[in-house]
């Protein structure tokens, strides 16, 4: 059966597969660019009329426009394949961002982040598991929410879904909940950061630790400042690199209960789950460390990374569907929200302590 499909595919399918992405990518670009224009327009209007308007970054505009479209008119089928590429733009953007980091900074910040990440993962899993039991959620949904909240939202949930053989419904809900909670965080975290007068580095580390979806972590950081966005991506990538270990632990746990396949070849499993874009990021950072690029070239690579993120942020809004949450009911969402709140508070404490010790 699969061979017949494979034989039919190549001649027609490949160009068509690219063509069907175009409407969605064009929509991502249009929304992202509208966000960029909105930021400039508000700024110019404030200047011209001597008004102290809040500086709303293009990131937030793009996400808001996307949110409004997806939760009101909805997204037409023709745009969906292209919108799904937002994850591709995110990863390409992260690799390009490597040009703005020297490897020494990556190791220093990555080292501090790694210590905090390990604590954050332990805390998030423990809280989610306890809350899941209290609220009597389905055990596999609790596992998905725990993986999503401890590591990296959507990709972690998808990775875990296959490994622990969870239902599609549970995974769709866990993804919707993580995205919706992250969207709320985009408004709350920068406000808290400003209230506590956090440094750009400290805020970036916090956003990278506390916001679950990589695109939203990058967005939360970028809303605070450019540097905070950069640091948030680095911290979040460190967290993402741990995905294999956590998913493997859950896979082994569910296999021991006879409810998932036993994992054969644990090293291969870890490599399969390892986010390869982290390697790309480190490679470009290595090139930058050896001064492969001049100033203008670094600026161009940084701008390419911004354009890629612009498409990503538009996609985040378009992919967040609050209606999915209504479908599963409020209880799992409340569990997710309670866990997120605790993780937010714990990571904030960790980051403030680390900022004092390591002078972030």
């Amino acid at each position: 059966m699969s061979e017949a499909v494979a034989i039919q595919r190549p001649a027609v399918a490949l160009p068509w597969r690219f063509v069907r992405l175009l409407p969605g990518i064009a929509l991502l670009f249009a929304i992202g660019y509208a966000g960029k224009l909105a930021e400039t327009l508000v700024k110019d209007y404030g200047k011209a009329h001597h008004l102290a308007l809040p500086n709303i970054e293009y990131v937030l505009w793009a996400i808001l426009i996307g949110l409004v479209i997806s939760n009101t008119a909805g997204v037409a089928q023709i745009f969906r394949p292209g919108i799904a590429t937002y994850d591709f733009w995110l990863k390409a953007g992260i690799v390009l961002l490597g040009a703005r980091f020297l490897l020494g900074d990556v190791l220093k910040l990555g080292g501090v982040s790694l210590g905090l990440v390990v604590i954050e993962i332990g805390v998030a899993i423990a809280i989610m598991t306890v809350l899941g039991r209290w609220f009597k959620l389905k055990p596999k949904l609790t596992s998905l929410l725990a993986v999503g909240s401890s590591i990296c939202g959507v990709s972690a949930i998808i990775a875990a879904k296959g490994a622990i053989e969870a239902d599609d419904d549970d995974a769709a809900f866990a993804i919707a909940a993580i995205l919706a909670l992250g969207a709320f965080g985009l408004f709350a975290y920068p406000a808290i950061g400003h209230f506590l007068h956090m440094s750009e580095h400290a805020f970036g580390v916090w956003a990278g630790l506390a916001v679950d979806n990589t695109a939203e972590a990058a967005a939360a950081g970028a809303i605070y400042s450019d540097t905070a966005g950069k640091v948030a991506v680095l911290t979040k990538s460190t967290r993402n690199a741990m995905i294999g270990f956590v998913v493997l632990a859950y896979a082994v746990y569910w296999a021991s209960k006879g409810q998932a396949k036993t994992v054969q070849g644990k090293a291969a499993f870890l490599w399969q789950k390892f986010p390869k874009f982290v390697l790309g990021f480190l490679f470009v950072s290595l090139l930058a460390t050896f001064q492969t690029f001049d100033k203008a070239q670094i600026a161009s690579l940084a701008n390419l990374s911004r354009w890629a993120f612009l498409l990503t942020f538009a996609g985040v809004g378009l992919k967040t569907d609050f209606r999915e949450i209504r479908r599963q009911g409020a209880r799992p969402f409340v569990v997710g929200a309670l866990a997120e709140l605790t993780v937010t508070a714990v990571t904030l404490g960790l980051v403030l302590a680390a900022a004092a010790i390591f002078n972030l």
Partner: peptide, 30 residues
């Protein structure tokens, strides 16, 4: 041939852009 994952495609696309910026001085504004 084994299918490449999205991660690898993102790395390849980004590295292709890096090569363009480095070799033909592709200039990108914001």
């Amino acid at each position: 041939m084994k299918k490449l994952s999205l991660d690898w495609w993102a790395v390849i696309a980004a590295l292709a852009l890096v090569v363009l910026v480095k070799t033909v001085n592709l200039s990108v504004g914001w």
